[in-house]
């Protein structure tokens, strides 16, 4: 019996995911081979240990959360190209609304895949053109009057991100920020990569307590 479209989409998706893993890992490998530099494994693992518990847990949650929304083709392609919450997912939902198709139907599978693929191509082209146009200017920007700006990229970036989350989840945001600031008064040289273990745990505990309290209030009402 001929494979259904979804069976084929699963097969293509598996191939695309696994080849994407190979391409992804070939980038740092190519850098090491071309420049003949091999960073100490212990230093690389030290960096990985700081992020893997959080990133891989979040990765599992994202796979569980997004795949029912994005269909088969849309899911495989979205995870390869990234920027799911800020781009692919809203783009897919917008496309479904415009096409007036219901979710979890054969039609929505097609519309979402076309939408995500188009979005991926558009993003890739815009970023590529932007990078090529910007490349002659960047070295000049790094020196001179703009140098102080490049030294403050972390506060600028995480200030904007933090404000976004603070607006939506202000109760959850207070505790980990206060904890981090106070903790560093006593251990000032602790790097962000290590501190984030603690602030994430504190944040999750705080969020859980807020959630439980909210449920109790709902039951009482």
């Amino acid at each position: 019996m001929a494979d259904s479209y979804l069976d084929k989409a699963h097969r293509w998706g598996k191939i695309s995911s696994l080849t994407s893993v190979a391409v992804l890992l070939s980038v740092p490998l190519a850098i090491c081979l071309y420049y003949d530099v091999w960073p100490a494994a212990s230093s690389v693992f030290s960096g990985l240990l700081k992020i893997i518990p959080l990133f891989w847990t979040t990765g599992v949650i994202e796979v569980l959360s997004f795949s029912p929304l994005l269909g088969v083709g849309g899911t495989y392609l979205s995870f390869v190209t990234g920027n799911i919450t800020n781009l692919k997912l809203p783009c897919a939902l917008n496309a479904m609304q415009n096409a007036k198709v219901k979710s979890n139907t054969p039609e929505s599978e097609v519309i979402i895949t076309i939408s995500v693929a188009t979005s991926a191509i558009t993003t890739t082209v815009i970023i590529a053109v932007g990078v090529l146009l910007f490349s002659p200017i960047l070295p000049r920007l790094r020196e001179g009057v703009f140098a102080p700006a490049f030294q403050q990229t972390i506060p600028a970036l995480f200030g904007a991100l933090g404000a976004g989350y603070l607006a939506k989840h202000w109760r959850v945001s207070i505790l980990p920020n206060l904890f981090g600031i106070v903790f560093l008064i006593f251990v000032p040289t602790l790097e962000a990569g290590t501190l984030l273990f603690l602030t994430v745990i504190v944040s999750l505990i705080g969020a859980q307590l807020i959630y439980k309290r909210g449920q109790k209030k709902d039951k009482a009402a």
Binding site: L54, P155, F158, P176, G180, A192, L196, S203
Partner: peptide, 9 residues
């Protein structure tokens, strides 16, 4: 939020 808090701190 916990991740961002580390950098803000």
């Amino acid at each position: 939020i916990g991740l961002i808090a580390a950098f803000i701190s």
